[in-house]
Each structure stands twice: as C-alpha cells, then as structure tokens.
C-alpha cells in the first residue's frame, strides 16, 4: 500500500488559495520600505485587529518564504472547537501558544523557539490579542523581547497592516472588499544593554512609524 502524506500538499494548496483570495479581495500590495524580500530567517511582527491579518501578510511574501512562514496564534481560541483546530493545526500550520499562564502545559516561548530552530520564519502579533480599541496599537507584551534575546540571529521585521480590520472586523465572516497594503519596515534588534521595556517601546514605535498618515482608513 502506498502511504502518501497528503498534508503538505493540502497545506501548500490552502496557502496558495488563501493568498490568491486575499489578493482578489483586497488587491494587496507589499510596500518594502525598510527592507527587501530575503532568504534570512525572520520574525514578521505586525499590528493585529482581524483574523485576516496573517493571511494578508503571508500573501505578500514570496512563495518559498511563505511556505516556511508560520503565524503564531492563541491556542485557547484555536483549540476551542474541532473546526478551528483543524484550520489552525492542519490547514494553516499555525504555531499555537497557550496564553493563559496559570493553566498552560507548554511554555509558549519553547513552542516558538522550536519552530525557529526548525528553520521557519514567524508571523507574530506582539500585542497578544486583536486590538478592538480606538488606539492604533496596544502595548506590546514581552514575547517579542524574549524571542529576540533567545535567537539574536533572526531578523525582526516590523510590518504595518493597513485596512484589514475594516475588511474583516472581529466577529464577521464575510469580508468587505477594500484595498489593503502591508508596509515592511527596517529590521530591528535588541541593542547591547537595552532592557525589556525600552526595547518593546522602541519596537512599538518602529511599527507605528510605518502607519500612513493620509485619509485611507486605519
């Protein structure tokens, strides 16, 4: 009997379909402002307000880079029922981390470091949850700093995702077609002697600086 592992094929097909869909609906184009597409291992960190965010960001990457890039998402949400679990684990290959410190069985940092050590790039939302406030960006949680300290060789690329929260707001499942852009900034790194608070503040500012100022939504 042939025992073909259909999973990688299904995953790359799902990835390509979602990227095509994201482009058809949002006409998304990447703006490489501070960096260029590269083969370097990266952590793309971005603002987060919609489930579409990581699909949009992934659709801006080149196919080989997209194939090795996985999004980090909350296990409490994505393991809460079978459909979500199937989508997150089997279809989209997300790295699921347990956000709740009391009940968790796995350290989120270990899970993410394992993915990095496998040579994968990550899409990471340092706010830790979807931003539902009027503020453009919430305070950063410390995960980004911990990753940066643990794997200093990985590039940290700030990515501003524009308009996706209007395309697919929280709680909606049908997207409104609106134009989106993803703006990639210059990679940042922890500087010698820089402490956690200072670095997280600087990383947050680097992301905010990419936010366009004109009237095209937020």
């Amino acid at each position: 009997m042939l025992n073909v592992d259909y999973k990688p094929l299904m995953q790359s097909l799902a990835g390509a379909c979602l990227a095509g869909l994201a482009r058809a609906i949002t006409g998304v184009i990447p703006i490489w402002l501070g960096t260029k597409p590269s083969r370097n291992q990266r952590i793309y960190f971005a603002n987060h307000a919609s489930h579409g965010d990581f699909i949009l960001l992934a659709s801006c990457l080149q196919p080989e880079e997209r194939a090795r890039t996985r999004a980090v998402a909350g296990a409490d949400y994505w393991r809460s029922n079978r459909i979500r679990r199937f989508m997150a684990e089997d279809l989209l290959r997300t790295v699921l981390v347990e956000r709740n410190g009391v009940e968790r069985t796995q350290d989120p940092l270990d899970v993410m470091l394992k993915a990095l050590d496998d040579g994968q790039s990550l899409i990471f939302f340092p706010e830790g949850t979807r931003n539902m406030s009027e503020e453009p960006l919430l305070r950063f949680r410390s995960g980004l700093y911990n990753l940066a300290i643990a794997r200093p060789g990985v590039e940290l690329v700030p990515c501003w995702i524009e308009n996706m929260s209007r395309v697919l707001p929280k709680g909606m499942f049908l997207p409104v077609p609106l134009l989106c852009r993803v703006i990639f900034g210059a990679p940042i790194a922890v500087e010698p002697g820089e402490d956690r608070t200072l670095f997280l503040h600087r990383a947050r500012q680097a992301l905010l600086d990419l936010k366009p100022t004109n009237g095209a939504g937020r």
């Binding site: 006409g27 308009n163 209007r166 409104v176 077609p177 609106l178 134009l179 009237g215 095209a216 939504g217």
Partner: peptide, 12 residues
C-alpha cells in the same frame, strides 16, 4: 474595482 477604491477612502 472602482467601488472598492472609493469605499477604501471613506469613513466606515
């Protein structure tokens, strides 16, 4: 395409 461009620039 035109409506998508237009709505992108409005307040929704």
């Amino acid at each position: 395409a035109a409506l998508r461009e237009y709505v992108t620039l409005t307040h929704t």
